[in-house]
Amino acid sequence: MTTTTSKKKPAARSKWFPLVWVIPALLVVLALVVVLAQWLRSLPEVQSFLTDYPGEVAPAEGTPVGFPAWLQWQHFLNSLFILLIIRTGWQVRTTQRPAAHWTRNNSGLIRTKGKPTKISIDLWLHLSLDALWVLNGIVFYILLFATGQWLRVVPTSWEVIPNAISAALQYASLNWPHENGWVNYNSLQLIAYFVTIFIAAPLAIITGIRMSGAWPKNAAKLNKIYPVEVARAVHLPVMIYFTAFIIVHVTLVLTTGALRNLNHMYGGGDTESWTGFWFFAASLVVMAVAWIAARPLILRPIAALTGTVSK
């Protein structure tokens, strides 16, 4: 009589397993940064530096005060689009078996030679959101320079650099700089907004176009100058940057006078009323609905308006 033994397969490790050690390690690093920053602030030389460079530079002459209504709407739309773009971008990168595919109809205003490429419905949504984000960004850039709001987010003096270091040290030591974003950003905020608007956003667009089907595949010289591998190597770090920026930005908004900060961008005033909070809460509801709605069951009929959807 023979017996057979079966070996049990090891349990599949959850994709969230790395967070078990990443999060505690990150908390330890943050605690060490705080201790180091507080020790540095006790040094006479550092105290003198903080006195000379308090963390902000006086705004340039003619810099507008406050946030106009168009900027409030732009802020909301940018927040909505970038949230969904990050989500769909991650889905495109990690999903191995998409729920559906989309193929563009080759009989509309835009026609191409050859057979249209079939892409996942996740990539279709990602590219569609990219187009809306770019269109919204064009409007944003035009209004930013037409109204003088660019003066609030573009450094106009080299003193911004030491003041940004000062602001970073103040944040790290948990003795945060005092500023009024309605009038002027501190130098660290200024640099962060400048990088986001004028460096990270264009990089996301340029690398995204290179990776998309719109890029000419037969342009040998152009492809040699700008290989797709370079675009892929830059595109993911840019997404990580946007994610980190959003987390830090929202955290600081809510921990440095939430009502006043929310009223600046959502309520259109420099007060601590609840108006901005309720508009902010409504925007979160819209984002949550859009997040839930971005699923194949709802996306299929929408995508079918511009192409053929297949499982």
Rank of each mutant, 00 (worst) to 15 (best):
116 P>D: 12
48 S>T: 13
147 T>L: 09
268 G>D: 10
145 F>Q: 00
289 V>P: 02
263 N>A: 03
162 P>R: 00
146 A>M: 04
266 Y>T: 07
263 N>W: 01
21 W>Q: 09
181 G>P: 08
42 S>P: 00
290 A>M: 13
280 F>A: 12
222 L>K: 09
129 L>G: 08
241 Y>V: 11
287 M>I: 12
224 K>R: 15
165 I>S: 04
6 S>F: 15
57 V>M: 05
288 A>W: 15
26 L>N: 08
18 P>K: 01
171 Y>A: 01
102 W>N: 05
66 G>Y: 10
172 A>W: 11
222 L>A: 14
75 H>W: 15
293 A>K: 06
67 F>T: 05
289 V>G: 03
249 H>L: 10
291 W>Q: 12
80 L>I: 03
280 F>E: 02
260 R>Y: 06
192 A>E: 03
267 G>V: 09
39 W>E: 11
189 Q>W: 10
97 R>N: 15
194 F>S: 14
222 L>F: 11
90 W>V: 15
143 L>Q: 11
9 K>G: 03
243 T>N: 04
186 N>Q: 04
205 I>P: 01
107 S>R: 07
292 I>Q: 11
201 A>D: 03
168 A>M: 10
104 R>D: 01
131 A>P: 00
1 M>H: 02
206 I>N: 06
243 T>G: 13
34 V>R: 07
310 S>K: 07
76 F>R: 05
22 V>C: 01
26 L>C: 12
145 F>V: 04
50 L>D: 03
166 S>N: 04
168 A>I: 08
92 V>P: 10
67 F>E: 02
263 N>M: 04
192 A>K: 00
138 I>K: 05
267 G>Y: 04
291 W>I: 12
267 G>E: 07
212 S>H: 04
46 V>L: 07
141 Y>W: 08
226 Y>S: 07
238 V>T: 10
156 T>C: 01
114 G>M: 10
293 A>Q: 06
16 W>L: 14
138 I>A: 10
125 L>W: 02
20 V>S: 05
40 L>I: 03
220 A>T: 14
235 H>F: 10
112 T>A: 03
3 T>P: 02
112 T>F: 01
107 S>I: 04
174 L>E: 04
182 W>K: 07
156 T>A: 09
109 L>M: 13
198 F>C: 13
261 N>D: 01
173 S>F: 01
